[in-house]
Design a protein around this nucleic acid. Sequence first.
RNA 1: UCGGGGGUAGUCUAACGGUAGGACACAUGGUUUUGGUCCAUGCGAUAGGGGUUCGAUUCCCUUCCCCUGAGCCA
Length: 561
Amino acid sequence: MKKEIEENESTNFIHQIIEKDLLEGKNGSRVHTRFPPEPNGYLHIGHAKSIILNFSTAEKYNGLCNLRFDDTNPMKEEEEYVRSIKENIKWLGYDWEDRCYFASDYFEKMYEYAVQLIKKGKAYVCDLSADEIREYRGTPTQVGKNSPYRNRENDENLKLFKKMKAGEFPNGAKTLRAKIDMSNPNINMRDPIIYRILHSAHQNTGNKWCIYPTYDWAHGLEDSIENITHSLCTLEFEDHRPLYDWFLNELEVYRPQQIEFARLNLNYTMMSKRKLNELVSKNYVNGWDDPRMPTISGLKRRGYTPDAIKDFIERIGVAKNEGIVDIALLEHCLRDDLNKKALRFMGVLDPIKVVIDNYPDDKTEELEAINNPGDESAGTRKVPFSKEIYIEKDDFMEVAPKKYYRLTIGREVRLRYAYFIKATSIVKDKNGEITEIHCTYDPATKGGNSPDGRKVKSTIHWVSAKDAIDANVRMYDRLFTVENPLGDKEKSFKEFLNPDSLKVLENCKLEPNLKNLNVGDTVQFERKGYFILDEDSTNKDQVFNLAVPLRDKWKKIRRKR
RNA sequence: UCGGGGGUAGUCUAACGGUAGGACACAUGGUUUUGGUCCAUGCGAUAGGGGUUCGAUUCCCUUCCCCUGAGCCA
């Protein structure tokens, strides 16, 4: 066991704690984690960090990880979110087996525990209003004062609590509070509320309950009931740990260990569920799975793979420093993964016609192309070639700057897997726009090799005009123009939305082999980037989403000038 | 000045008293039928000040900076 652990190179402070516990035989040397989402929104990449941490930690130590919905607030939660959360976790490649639980599964038990706490004299029913409770609570620098209801007899508390449960009081009329210490410097310990009255139907329990447990009361109990060993959560719950411990200790039940880590932040996007919701509801983006969204559904539709996301999460590590990770790392992980897996094709995104004057009018050749230069087992394919082809507009320049290696009048370049061609003349329309480039080809260079050994400065991609298939390609860019869209106190994040985050190219010409793709397949368009076939495709028209562009040295050179 | 947490290259992260290392980013060169990939090289950090020690990112003291907490949200 120990050897296994040492062989695994990735380490973080949580795993160090676990390994120490294992060595000491704590919890019977068992590891059991859980991922506890509230079903009140879609999961984002920040949640992916938690999912991957919890599931992979369990995996690493031969333990288990539960999926548990923390559904203690019926006002905000919906079945639809439960569905999407399950789907996202499965997509990431994790399996909770038969251990999908709901906080609401334990409502009865939680109620009994509350009764127990009352009987112990450690909880009381309070009649203070929300405003009054706030006043009595004090401030960080000022102690609170006891509620006038704090010293009710246990029997009266019990009676009242039963009436709360029976629905005899309106919302907000009463709460059940833990009796701890109104002068505790930790505000969470100043007689926290553990039950509130909410006459609201719950998606699981219907109208059975009109009192609902608060997070602090519910969460530790859920962990305890499920025999969780290590309860991993984000830093903002650090202040709640004393309360987590207090409840379980007072109840004298099994107490898991809560460990807090820093949540993930990414630049040029944001993780706020509420604000992401606003982008969706006000149509700044096209739904939760818009490929520009940092949601797991959005990432999936963008063309991200579970492997790339896992690799990313592994690389950023787990610590207690709150940092902002560069989204370039996420993109790198995707390229890294897709470079190994994606088949290459030629697609001209912004086409201009090239006529090869000395090529026979009606001839079509099938030329052999390599599917993945890094993976011989991916094989080869045939690509049709003919007299008229399309190339990218920016692969030709009438006046070529110094470091421009591509096609220009008089210069010879290679058409990938085809022939060397040399530009001879251009045709322009009345606006001075180039409409056609005329070239000659060298028949001896078939396949792209020159028998006389002459070199060419660049290789460009192309598509046979008469064989091309049409497609729409959605070019995505970062959603925001600034690293931290929430970082400006005066301006709304909406002012930093990138107006160019989506550009639709409607006249793309693709090699015919792409016809056989299925929705969700990801490919590389050579020299351009990785693209995924989107679900909006029809039999007639394919729609591709840019997942991530290839690194582009020429772009850098151009930018410098 | 109340409580809790945190400060290691531009970014994220390791080193647990013993050569400050890795990844991304950036830069330069090589290979290349993708200005991709790959390979090589370079750049570059312990917030400040004291102390303990043969030796401190690590332990102690102190100053500074950042985050977080006053929901019947989670």
